[in-house]
């Protein structure tokens, strides 16, 4: 009996939550639509004019478009790599009785914990001096960042997928093995289809994290593999932070992630459900 009004109450509550969630992003958009002379107008919440130059300038800049493409390549490459590696690794951790597997699991996760600043020097040396073949260096390459982002994405992916793997009844594998299935068949016919939502979530979150990373990209790229987030820092200059263009680029950087979100929102909870069960 009380049910209907109470759930309307929830809608009202969520309208509030949504406003709080959206307001900062809305403000980002407002700033992106303002010219510099309009910046100091905090009282104006509704933006009626649109200063398109903030968008046009970065978008018509070839280097900037390059940053976007680099970001797409790196985030996608990293998400695919991380997902493949994490599926294999968590399957191994979950199904094989490997010596010290829980220690390995914990160790992989510790890789995400390091405060990054001090680790940039060894990474720079590694990329610029150690990992090179002739004139080719790992520094400022797409593959370099794709591999490096594994440091923080793999732990996360393994953490997420491990419980998903554990959640798939082992009896399924065993039944298939009795029927003569190989490891590969078990993986592709049983594990991956069953874990698909979780795998998709892993891939998407990895993609988002890789897309958003700033510090490593700023240090380990120069011209050819620079990403969009490092481009953001270019607006903070001595002659004035170009807030308008910076906000515009932030909005642009947000779009692909948004697209992802809209397409997969149905699966987010399902994907996590699996992971959360155990």
């Amino acid at each position: 009996m009380r049910r209907v009004p109470r759930n309307i109450g929830l809608t009202v509550l969520w309208i509030g939550v949504t406003i709080l969630t959206l307001f900062p992003i809305y403000w980002l958009f407002v700033i992106s639509a303002r010219s510099r002379v309009e910046l100091f107008e905090p009282q104006r919440l509704i933006q009626t004019t649109f200063f398109a130059e903030n968008y046009i300038r970065p978008l018509s800049d070839r280097t900037f478009r390059g940053y976007i493409i680099n970001s797409v390549i790196i985030a996608t490459g990293n998400a695919l790599l991380v997902t493949i590696l994490a599926v294999a690794a968590t399957y191994a951790l979950s199904r094989y009785r490997l010596k010290g597997s829980s220690n390995i699991f914990f160790w992989t996760i510790t890789n995400r914990m390091a405060p990054p600043a001090a680790f940039l020097l060894p990474l720079f040396l590694l990329y610029a001096r150690v990992l090179k073949i002739g004139d080719w260096k790992m520094f400022d390459t797409h593959i370099g960042l794709i591999l490096l982002y594994c440091v923080f994405n793999l732990p996360f992916a393994i953490w997420l997928l491990k419980s998903i793997m554990d959640g798939i009844p082992i009896e399924l594998d065993e039944a298939a093995r009795v029927d003569g299935a190989t490891t590969r068949m078990v993986l592709f016919r049983i594990i991956i289809p069953l874990a698909a939502p979780g795998i998709a979530i892993t891939a998407i979150l990895s993609w988002v994290f890789a897309w958003n990373e700033y510090l490593f990209a700023a240090t380990l790229t120069s011209v050819t593999a620079r990403t969009i987030t490092t481009g953001l820092a270019e607006f903070v200059t001595v002659t004035g932070t170009n807030w308008g263009e910076m906000a515009a680029v932030s909005v642009i950087a947000l779009l692909p992630a948004l697209l992802f979100l809209a397409l997969v929102q149905k699966y987010i909870v399902i994907g996590l459900t699996f992971g959360a069960v155990k």
Binding site: T18, L28, N212, Y214, A233, L254, L261
Partner: peptide
């Protein structure tokens, strides 16, 4: 909509 902030780059979150 609620999941939106997750998608924003930390550096852009700070700027926002």
């Amino acid at each position: 909509v609620f999941a939106l902030p997750l998608m924003v780059a930390p550096i852009a979150v700070g700027a926002t």
